[in-house]
């Protein structure tokens, strides 16, 4: 890493919002990775006699309608939600990258055909498209991953195409071409490394939308199914308790809000880091 890039990174990280976001994202990732091992209780163990207890030293976030420890459920739900985000985005990249590269690099008929397809997909609101996909395939973890990937892919493919178009006209790429580099080498060595940063920024921001999509599907009963804890379905199954046990809604709700804030903070910082138009002082 060059001295300038290092300075940039330090500067970006020093902004309090970014620092907070980074720490929070790291915390979520650790909780998610830890899953059941970081949870104070077995998230599925019920104790009907201790149902709907408010937050206390024993149960930090209280207990739910079946007497399960809410903190433990929010933590294992983080694992589920993050796993779906990561897998869903992997599906999105896996679909969008080849499409975007071919469209941008080859151009012509291939470009028009592929972009026509992605434009058609973009005309649907993504949540509606996700609902349709899940209804066709059937609710569950796998279909949510699929729905998330396929609704994120079209916009990503367009972004990649436009980045490839710009990169392919850059002087260093033309220089490489003049030296006789073939298409695979051009893409692999010269284009991909130059668009990776911008794609990463986009993916981070897409991650926060992804959480909203997953939890919305869960809330509608189309996402990850109970008894597997997931923030959206936790909200859905307990919302009738709003008046009597508000902590049931507050805990998964806060988990979603804080996560989206943190991811956006990190995404903004990454954008600053990779945006070539931003002028950096000495």
């Amino acid at each position: 890493m060059s001295a300038t890039a290092g300075r940039r990174l330090t500067r970006v990280l020093r902004a309090p919002v970014t620092a907070a976001g980074t720490i929070l994202v790291a915390a979520y990732l650790m909780l998610g990775a830890g899953g059941p091992w970081t949870a104070p209780y077995d998230p599925d163990a019920q104790d009907l006699g201790a149902a709907l207890q408010p937050p206390s030293p024993r149960h930090w976030l209280g207990t739910d309608d079946l007497g399960r420890d809410l903190a433990s459920r929010v933590i294992v739900a983080a694992r589920v939600d993050l796993a779906v985000v990561v897998l869903g985005l992997a599906v999105a990249v896996g679909t969008a990258l080849p499409v975007g590269l071919v469209a941008g690099y080859a151009g012509g008929t291939a470009d028009r055909a592929l972009m026509g397809l992605s434009d058609a997909a973009l005309t649907f609101p993504s949540l509606v498209l996700a609902v349709v996909l899940v209804s066709l395939v059937g609710a569950g973890l796998r279909s949510v991953v699929l729905a998330l990937g396929l609704t994120t892919a079209p916009a990503l493919a367009r972004l990649i195409r436009s980045l490839v178009l710009t990169a392919a006209r850059a002087e260093y790429v033309e220089a490489a071409r003049a030296l006789g580099a073939g298409a695979p080498r051009m893409i692999w060595r010269h284009i991909l490394p130059n668009i990776a940063g911008r794609v990463a920024v986009y993916m981070t921001l897409a991650g926060s939308y992804a959480v909203l999509t997953i939890t919305a599907l869960g809330f509608l009963g189309l996402g990850v199914q109970p008894p597997t804890a997931e923030w959206g379905n936790m909200l859905a199954t307990t919302r009738t308790y709003l008046a009597t046990a508000p902590w049931l809604i507050a805990a998964p709700g806060a988990a979603i809000v804080v996560f989206i804030f943190a991811v956006n903070a990190v995404g903004e910082a990454l954008r600053d880091l990779f945006d070539p138009r931003l002028v950096w002082g000495p």
């Binding site: 599925d44 163990a45 019920q46 009907l48 309608d65 079946l66 009963g221 109970p226 008894p227 199954t237």
Partner: peptide, 17 residues
């Protein structure tokens, strides 16, 4: 079923446990 009988999914989860 989910949402057909009163508290169906909750009762089934309790049964499972």
């Amino acid at each position: 079923p989910v949402g057909l009988f009163p508290k169906d999914i909750e009762v089934t989860q309790a049964f499972q446990d």
